[in-house]
Simulated assay, not measured.
Amino acid sequence: MGSSLKSAQFLIESRLRDAATGNSDACYDLGIVFSTGSNGVGIDLIEAHKWFNLAAVAGHHEAQYCRAEIADDMTARDIAEAQRQARALLNQSMHRAA
């Protein structure tokens, strides 16, 4: 059981590293993880929306659909928070690239 938890943590950390480089598939995968509560992570729709949003901005069409789907289960305040977090990550990425 400890081994599968370590594998799940490695997967999440790997996808976070890839997402930090702008990999839209990694952002999409993180959206899936947080929207379904898989890989030892609890369901967090704000976090899921953030990652789907980042993937969608990068042109990931499936992420656009998933973002819309989970938005139906979120409050306007939750969506605004997810968008704020996504913008903050985009701004960090732009400053690192400059």
Results as ranks from 00 to 15, higher is better:
residue 65 Y to P: 00
residue 46 I to G: 04
residue 81 E to M: 12
residue 83 Q to I: 09
residue 90 L to D: 04
residue 53 N to T: 07
residue 58 A to G: 10
residue 1 M to P: 12
residue 4 S to V: 09
residue 42 G to P: 03
residue 27 C to D: 14
residue 76 A to M: 13
residue 48 A to W: 02
residue 84 R to E: 15
residue 43 I to G: 01
residue 46 I to F: 03
residue 75 T to I: 06
residue 84 R to D: 14
residue 51 W to Y: 15
residue 63 A to H: 03
residue 5 L to Y: 04
residue 97 A to N: 11
residue 22 G to H: 02
residue 67 R to K: 11
residue 59 G to Y: 01
residue 23 N to R: 12
residue 27 C to L: 02
residue 19 A to C: 13
residue 43 I to Q: 08
residue 98 A to D: 12
residue 45 L to M: 07
residue 18 D to M: 15
residue 19 A to V: 05
residue 34 F to P: 00
residue 33 V to Q: 00
residue 39 N to P: 00
residue 30 L to V: 08
residue 1 M to Y: 14
residue 24 S to W: 03
residue 97 A to C: 08
residue 70 I to N: 06
residue 20 A to Q: 13
residue 11 L to E: 15
residue 97 A to S: 13
residue 76 A to I: 05
residue 66 C to G: 00
residue 37 G to H: 08
residue 80 A to E: 14
residue 96 R to N: 09
residue 86 A to K: 00
residue 42 G to H: 13
residue 93 S to R: 09
residue 47 E to P: 02
residue 29 D to S: 05
residue 65 Y to W: 11
residue 52 F to A: 02
residue 41 V to Q: 15
residue 6 K to A: 15
residue 46 I to P: 00
residue 4 S to W: 03
residue 30 L to Y: 04
residue 84 R to C: 06
residue 45 L to Q: 03
residue 55 A to D: 02
residue 76 A to E: 15
residue 97 A to W: 02
residue 13 E to P: 01
residue 79 I to V: 15
residue 32 I to C: 07
residue 83 Q to P: 00
residue 34 F to N: 04
residue 35 S to E: 08
residue 41 V to F: 05
residue 47 E to G: 06
residue 88 A to F: 06
residue 72 D to Y: 03
residue 77 R to I: 12
residue 51 W to S: 04
residue 39 N to A: 14
residue 40 G to L: 11
residue 22 G to Y: 06
residue 60 H to G: 04
residue 56 A to L: 00
residue 20 A to M: 14
residue 29 D to C: 02
residue 53 N to D: 04
residue 44 D to K: 11
residue 41 V to K: 14
residue 21 T to M: 12
residue 64 Q to R: 12
residue 70 I to P: 02
residue 53 N to C: 04
residue 74 M to W: 05
residue 25 D to S: 13
residue 61 H to K: 14
residue 5 L to I: 13
residue 44 D to L: 05
residue 18 D to A: 09
residue 83 Q to K: 11
residue 94 M to L: 14
residue 77 R to T: 13
residue 75 T to F: 02
residue 23 N to M: 07
residue 57 V to C: 03
residue 2 G to H: 13
residue 80 A to V: 01
residue 73 D to T: 09
residue 10 F to P: 00
residue 51 W to R: 04
residue 20 A to W: 02
residue 69 E to N: 09
residue 40 G to I: 11
residue 49 H to P: 02
residue 66 C to I: 07
residue 68 A to H: 05
residue 11 L to K: 11
residue 96 R to M: 09
residue 76 A to H: 10
residue 4 S to H: 12
residue 60 H to L: 06
residue 15 R to M: 14
residue 41 V to I: 11
residue 47 E to R: 13
residue 39 N to V: 08
residue 36 T to M: 08
residue 14 S to F: 07
residue 76 A to W: 01
residue 89 L to W: 12
residue 77 R to Q: 15
residue 65 Y to H: 12
residue 97 A to L: 15
residue 79 I to F: 01
